Amino acid sequence: MTAASAPSAVLLHTPLNALHLELGARMVPFAGYSMPVQYPAGLMAEHLHTRASAGLFDVSHMGQLRLVGADAAAAFESLMPVDVIGLGLHKQRYGLLLNDEGGILDDLMFVNRGEDLFVIVNGACKAADIAHLQARIGQRCEVIPMPEQALLALQGPQAVTALARLAPGVAQLVFMTGGHFELAGARCYVTRSGYTGEDGFEISVPATQAEALARALLAQPEVQPIGLGARNSLRLEAGLCLYGNDLDTGTTPVEAGLTWAIQKARRAGGEREGGFPGAARVLAQLADLSGAAGVLTRRRVGLVALERVPVREHTELQTEAGERIGEVCSGLLGPSVNQPVAMAYVRADQAALGTRLQAIVRGKAVPMQVAAMPFIPNRYYRG
């Protein structure tokens, strides 16, 4: 999901547009689409319902595509600091498309389905991503966009209860695995994943059958519709990045704190070390995680406000002595943690847990402290 949007352009509609309007959604421009930001219950109620039960999200604005061919895994791996070749059948992984300076073009999810690599990219980036893939690896594999597919996310501790009524087999999936299932008469591909920090599923469904599936899910007693507003607050509490806010083409995976997404095989000394765009810079930063060598100059951190003042993106951060050392990239009052939380990029020597900083909000210094993420424990189902 990305914050980028073009309100001046003609907005596209997802296959669930009529259903959103029927449910009383407030629609806003997002990534070139008209999307529901909230329903009549409101953002706070939707957020808390997802944490307690199950929420249904329309994420059909995101891009879905297939990479097909015997060389697809090796080709895709050449664009990312991620192990694609070693990914098992129906296993899912988080990936990062990098530019030649090691900056992040997009973050994405992909699954090895055997017959293809199934890739999900951010809505506002999808046209550029597809062009990038065609240009860089289009000679090595087929890059096939899937505009005929919609995408639904069912998230929360009761998501498995609700979805298993339609297809009992989904309960056998564990976090970051997928499979083919029939749901409400539609042939779907389901992964046990999502972007809320909760257990849940993402469902690729033919666009023509998406509304019927959404209605079948909303008919389950646990499930309520959830808009983009709560999706944003849920992902921030879970410490998850939003492309366009927390990630961009000028930020490397190491600066972004996404080193966990760089598997051992692609690191220094690994069997397929480097070989991705910007590898020299990224591997040098990996070797300097402390920032002592001056190669890694800034890092993404979690922050909690020590006063009850929400601190929004682009807010300046200073040391307690008044020296500017960074900027907030995402921030709000976390509904579940009931305190202001934020993510920010700060100078590497100010990134240690417990470091006291101050945010300048309307000319007033708000005390903040570097804190561990996620702000609320993740509840992914690992079996």
Rank of each mutant, 00 (worst) to 15 (best):
A372Q: 13
A280H: 08
C125S: 08
P225M: 14
L151G: 06
G291H: 00
D349Y: 06
A52R: 11
G24W: 06
L163M: 04
C241E: 06
A73K: 01
I325E: 02
C188E: 14
E271R: 07
R66K: 04
F118R: 05
F175E: 05
Q369P: 00
L217E: 08
N232L: 10
L234W: 04
T14R: 13
A131D: 15
C188M: 11
T251S: 03
N122G: 08
Q220R: 14
H47D: 00
Q358N: 09
G354I: 10
V37Y: 11
R281A: 08
I262G: 14
L117S: 10
L105W: 03
A344Q: 07
T315H: 01
Y381A: 02
Q358F: 10
T259C: 15
G95L: 08
Q285D: 01
G244H: 01
G291W: 01
G185W: 15
M109Q: 13
A131Y: 12
G334M: 12
G244F: 03
G331P: 09
R215S: 02
P335Y: 11
I137F: 10
V84F: 09
D246S: 01
A372I: 13
L218N: 01
P40H: 10
L289A: 06
G55M: 07
N232V: 07
D199P: 07
A219W: 09
A268K: 13
A52Q: 07
H314Q: 05
G302V: 14
Q339A: 15
P147D: 01
A153C: 01
A124E: 11
A150S: 07
E307P: 14
A150N: 08
N378V: 13
H61L: 10
T355C: 08
A305L: 14
M1N: 02
R26I: 13
G169W: 14
M80N: 15
H90D: 08
L21N: 00
E211S: 09
H49R: 00
L213I: 05
T319F: 15
T297M: 05
G178A: 10
H13R: 15
L173A: 04
L289Q: 06
R299Q: 06
L317M: 10
F118Y: 09
G334L: 12
G322Q: 11
